[in-house]
Computed example of a mutant assay.
Amino acid sequence: MQVVSISSLKGGVGKTSVTLGLASAALAAGISTLVVDLDPHADATTGLGVRAHEEEDIGRMLKRARRADLNANVVPSGWVRQRDSNDGPPLVLDVAMGSAYTGIYDRPDLGKRDLRRLSTLLSKVDKYDLVLIDCPPSLNGLTRMAWTASNRVLLVAEPGLFSVAGTERTLRAIDVFSNEFAPALEPAGIVANRVRSASNEHSYRLTEMQAMFGDLLLSPTVGEQANWQQIQGAAHAVHNWPGESAKYAAGLFDQLLDGLVASGQVRDRVRR
């Protein structure tokens, strides 16, 4: 099971949009996926069309991590439509729901015991090939809790001065954090998001990012989508949205997912 934190130090760069795009690609590919919405704003939960009944949100499960049953409290995404029995096994895209309650852990002073709370929850599940953790835009306790539970960190950045500088700081933070708390943790790469091809500033910053980050800057970049807010507002998967623009965006996330799952290792397990 690969566990990937999706992180950014700067808000507003489309971190949750990238999480949702990758979740849509995983669903389309038949990869069993769990999205953990660790951002107190819970935007990923909303965008995934979750309809909860009596399930606990991730914040309340974290509070009693040793006793909580993550399997019993995940909620299927509203994107999922069960396949006909002749088309193979059911698609799996589950959500550990976000809530403002997680904010009690978004502090800079969490000890090692608290940092292991999400790891403890995830240790009890084994039905997923991929776990995507949508982190808040900070380096406080929730992000560090996510990194402790993760194999890799995927960074999201806009091609702008402040976002690029924040990404550089985040890479340094991952290095320091892995040395102290999570020796197996490594960056999965950097997604350049909301790229405007006609912008000279964006072109300049992309060139700068290539020089600064080398192979960590992933290809393809994700352009600014005029209909992205409409897609998210309808709580739809981009792969199921009509139109050439959505089809093109879906293809970008398919390519990013291929790289994220380590040269198709997860896909190969699914096929077998």
Rank of each mutant, 00 (worst) to 15 (best):
E158D: 09
E158M: 15
P159D: 07
P159R: 07
P159A: 13
P159I: 08
G160S: 15
G160E: 15
G160T: 15
L161A: 04
F162E: 06
F162P: 00
S163L: 04
S163P: 08
A165T: 04
A165G: 02
T167R: 05
R169W: 02
L171R: 04
R172H: 00
R172Y: 00
I174H: 03
I174E: 05
I174Q: 05
D175R: 07
D175E: 12
D175I: 00
V176G: 01
F177Q: 00
F177A: 00
F177C: 00
N179Q: 04
N179C: 00
F181T: 03
F181D: 03
F181K: 02
F181Y: 10
A182T: 01
P183E: 04
P183L: 01
A184D: 11
L185H: 09
E186H: 04
P187Y: 12
P187Q: 12
A188Q: 12
G189F: 05
G189W: 05
G189S: 06
G189R: 03
V191P: 03
N193S: 15
N193G: 13
R194L: 14
R194E: 12
V195Y: 15
V195I: 14
V195R: 07
V195A: 10
R196A: 15
S197K: 13
S199V: 12
N200Y: 11
N200Q: 15
H202T: 10
